[in-house]
Simulated scan of single mutants.
Amino acid sequence: MSAAIIFAITIVLPNLVLMGLGFFMQRRGEISQAFIDQASKMVFNYALPCLLFFSVANSSVDYSQQIVLIGAGLLVTLLLFGGAEVYARCFIEQPEDQGVFVQGIFRSNMAILGLATVANAYGEVGLSVGAVYMGIITIVFNVLAVITLSRVTTGITTLRGRVLMIGKKIIANPLIIALVSAFVYKALGLPTLQGVILQTGNLLAAIALPLALICAGATIDIKSMLSPSGLSMQASIGRIIIAPLLAVAVGWGFGLTGVHMGVLFLMVASPTAAASYVMAKAMDGNEVLAANILAFTTVVSLFGMAIGAAILRGAGWM
């Protein structure tokens, strides 16, 4: 059991340290909001897509072996979305709160914290498997987020308008573009990228996760995090407790073990995605509620991931 605890600490502690560094630098005035905004855009538009592209394009992962994992991830996502939608419609009155609540439960931070933790746990193999998983689930996340938030979006009143909006967001998403490009590259059987292209790509990809974690830490608002509203606490319980338990149950039902169970658990157990706040604000959702959910789950979920990883590791499931 001690080995399992050490394993859990090893995969989670680096993320906490980098987030703590970002928080410390922000408190000392060494990181400005302008830097956070610009660095986040750089990570989202260039560094992270580069990391995902090279992780998939140069991987030796057999994609046919990821079908069960992806199926389990899709089922977990749809169950969380459906359950949160039912709860929101029954117990939450304001439309601008409903979509934010739902998104806070089903949409995890796979691209930053999930992928970073998987990389810490399993190295290049885990990163490749995680990138393939994220490529499919990210598309689903974006579609479901637009659906649940569009109930309060002004100016979009027709089904055609909503479909076009979803299509534009998917087509313009840098992460999806990078992953689809990598899948096409692999499907065409092109040679493995080497030389200057590979070295340049690796240098750019190397800054993605550390910089993203530092920026995430710099945006944490302790006051907001420690005094959440009732709705933010309810959503946080769904993300921190219900989502990981559901992932383990579905993974067990699908017969997942080892890296696949680890990827499913760590991706689902990650805190609410940072993009949820941006999307809620852009689509007229309750941005304060979105920020509270994001802040609280960002810190608390990491401890839940460590505890869950220790238990699963001790049981020999991941």
Rank of each mutant, 00 (worst) to 15 (best):
L21H: 10
E287I: 14
V125M: 12
I6T: 13
S276P: 04
G71L: 02
V76T: 10
M261I: 08
I147S: 01
L80C: 14
L211D: 04
A39F: 13
E93Q: 15
G314D: 02
I139W: 11
G99V: 05
A282V: 08
L188D: 10
L312D: 10
L256D: 07
R89K: 04
I5H: 05
I307W: 00
V196Y: 11
A121M: 04
M279W: 07
A3M: 00
F7A: 10
L211H: 06
V248H: 00
I240H: 07
K281S: 11
V152S: 11
I139R: 11
I70S: 05
Q66A: 12
I31V: 08
K168Y: 00
L159S: 14
D97V: 00
P244L: 14
N173D: 14
G135A: 02
I11V: 12
V132G: 08
I139Q: 07
A57E: 15
T138W: 01
L175V: 11
Q234R: 01
V250D: 06
R313L: 07
P228R: 09
N292R: 13
N58D: 13
N286V: 10
I112R: 06
A208D: 03
A178K: 10
S60K: 15
I240Q: 04
L198Y: 11
Y133D: 01
Y63N: 05
I166Q: 06
S59A: 12
S224T: 13
G285E: 11
G195R: 04
A249E: 01
V152A: 09
